[in-house]
Simulated assay, not measured.
Amino acid sequence: MKNIITILTLAFAFTFVQAAVAQNLDNIDTSKKNYIVLTKKVQQLKPITLAAEEMKAEDGSEYGEFHVVFCGKDIPQLTDKKFMKPYLEMLEKGNVKLIACGFSLKKFGVDPKDLPEGIDIVDNGIAYSLKLKKLGFYGMEL
C-alpha cells in the first residue's frame, strides 16, 4: 500500500510540474520566423546559439523565437548546475529557450525539480517539435 501511495504521489507531482512549466503554444507569434532544434548533446548548445544569433541578425524585425529541445540519454547532464552554467548564460544572452523532454527525464530517472531555473519541460520533445513545425517553425534535429 505504501508503494502505491508513493507511486501515485510521484506520478501526480511529475504531471503537475510538467503542466506548470510546459510552453503554451497559443502565445507564439506565428507571423514571425521561428526556429526549433532537437538535440541530444549539451556541447551542441554553443553552435546552436551561434546559429540563433545569425538567424536573428539575418531576419531582423521578422525574427521570432528560437527553441531547443533536449532529449535522450544525456539528459541527466542538464542537472549539473556548474557544468550547465556557461551554456545557460549563453542561451539566455541569445534569447534561446531550452526545453527538456519529459519523456527522457522520466526514462532516465531525472527529477524535474533538479533542473536549473530557466529550463522548461514538455511531455514529449519529439511531439513538441512536430507541433511547432506544424505552426510554421523552421526546424532540424541534431
Rank of each mutant, 00 (worst) to 15 (best):
I36Q: 08
N34D: 11
E65N: 14
A13G: 09
D111G: 01
Y87E: 08
G72H: 04
Y63N: 12
D111T: 03
M90P: 02
P76F: 06
F108I: 04
D114P: 02
D80P: 12
K106P: 01
L88S: 05
S104V: 02
S129Y: 08
N95Q: 15
M140C: 00
K133S: 10
D123H: 05
T79P: 07
I4S: 14
G125K: 01
M1F: 15
E117D: 11
K46I: 12
G136R: 05
E58Y: 13
E141L: 00
F16G: 00
K40R: 14
D26V: 05
C101K: 01
A52T: 10
K32T: 04
G109F: 07
V21R: 10
Q23S: 09
L8G: 14
D26Y: 09
F14T: 13
F83S: 13
Y138H: 09
K81M: 08
L135C: 00
K41Y: 15
I75L: 07
L105Y: 01
E141V: 10
D123K: 03
C101Q: 02
L88V: 04
L8T: 07
D29K: 10
V68D: 06
E58T: 12
D26E: 12
I48N: 04
L25K: 11
I7Y: 12
C101L: 05
K41L: 15
I75R: 02
L45N: 06
I36G: 01
I75Q: 01
Y63G: 08
E62N: 14
A52K: 08
D59I: 05
L98A: 04
F70H: 03
I126C: 03
K73Y: 13
D74S: 15
F83A: 14
V110M: 07
K133D: 10
A19D: 13
P116K: 03
F137L: 06
F108A: 05
K32C: 05
